[in-house]
Simulated scan of single mutants.
Amino acid sequence: MKKNTLPLPLLGGITVDQFLKEYWHKKPLLIRQAVPGFQPLIPKAELFAMAARDDVESRLISFINQHWEMKAGPQEKLPLKEKKDWTLLVQGVNLHDDQADTLLRQFRFIPDSRLDDLMISFATDGGGVGPHFDSYDVFLLQAHGQRKWRIGAQKDLTLIEGMPLKILRNFKAEQEFILEPGDMLYLPPKYAHDGIAIGECMTYSIGFRAPSFQELGESFLHFMSDSIDLPGRYADPDLTASSRPAEISNDMLEQVGAEIAKIQFTDDDVLIFLGEHLTEPKPSVFFNGPEKPLTPKRFEQTARKNGIKLSRKSQMLYKGKHIFINGESFAVGKEDKICLNKLANDRQLDGSDLAAVSADAMEAFCLWYEDGWLEIR
Results as ranks from 00 to 15, higher is better:
126 G>W: 01
137 D>M: 07
179 L>A: 07
92 G>E: 00
111 P>D: 08
210 A>C: 06
228 I>W: 04
131 P>S: 05
209 R>Y: 05
117 D>W: 02
143 A>G: 14
113 S>C: 07
160 I>Q: 06
99 Q>V: 04
173 A>N: 05
101 D>Y: 12
146 Q>M: 14
115 L>P: 11
85 D>N: 15
176 E>D: 13
146 Q>I: 05
206 I>R: 11
119 M>V: 11
164 P>T: 03
124 T>K: 09
167 I>H: 04
85 D>A: 15
167 I>C: 04
182 G>E: 03
181 P>Y: 04
144 H>E: 14
164 P>L: 05
226 D>V: 12
214 Q>K: 13
221 L>Q: 05
83 K>E: 13
123 A>H: 03
203 T>S: 15
130 G>K: 06
202 M>P: 10
101 D>N: 12
82 E>C: 02
81 K>R: 11
92 G>L: 00
129 V>R: 03
102 T>P: 00
221 L>E: 02
107 F>T: 12
140 L>V: 03
134 D>A: 10
118 L>I: 08
143 A>E: 03
210 A>Y: 07
181 P>C: 10
123 A>G: 02
91 Q>C: 02
118 L>T: 09
155 K>E: 14
112 D>Q: 15
132 H>C: 10
165 L>N: 05
125 D>L: 12
101 D>S: 13
168 L>V: 09
192 A>N: 03
102 T>H: 12
218 E>M: 11
217 G>I: 02
101 D>L: 03
183 D>Y: 14
86 W>G: 02
179 L>F: 06
201 C>H: 05
110 I>V: 15
163 M>N: 14
163 M>Y: 08
171 F>C: 14
138 V>E: 00
172 K>E: 09
98 D>T: 10
116 D>W: 12
159 L>Q: 07
161 E>Q: 15
218 E>T: 07
190 K>G: 06
190 K>Y: 14
103 L>K: 08
98 D>P: 01
142 Q>A: 02
104 L>V: 04
90 V>P: 02
227 S>M: 06
107 F>V: 10
151 I>L: 12
185 L>P: 12
191 Y>K: 08
117 D>P: 08
99 Q>H: 09
144 H>Y: 15
136 Y>M: 09
160 I>L: 10
139 F>L: 01
141 L>K: 02
171 F>Q: 11
145 G>D: 06
128 G>H: 07
200 E>R: 11
180 E>C: 10
153 A>I: 01
100 A>N: 01
167 I>D: 04
228 I>Y: 01
209 R>D: 05
83 K>Q: 14
147 R>I: 08
193 H>E: 05
112 D>C: 10
84 K>W: 07
181 P>R: 10
91 Q>F: 10
111 P>V: 08
194 D>I: 03
86 W>N: 06
85 D>S: 15
185 L>Y: 11
218 E>L: 15
173 A>W: 05
94 N>A: 03
204 Y>G: 13
145 G>L: 06
85 D>R: 15
96 H>E: 03
172 K>P: 00
198 I>F: 09
110 I>H: 09
206 I>L: 15
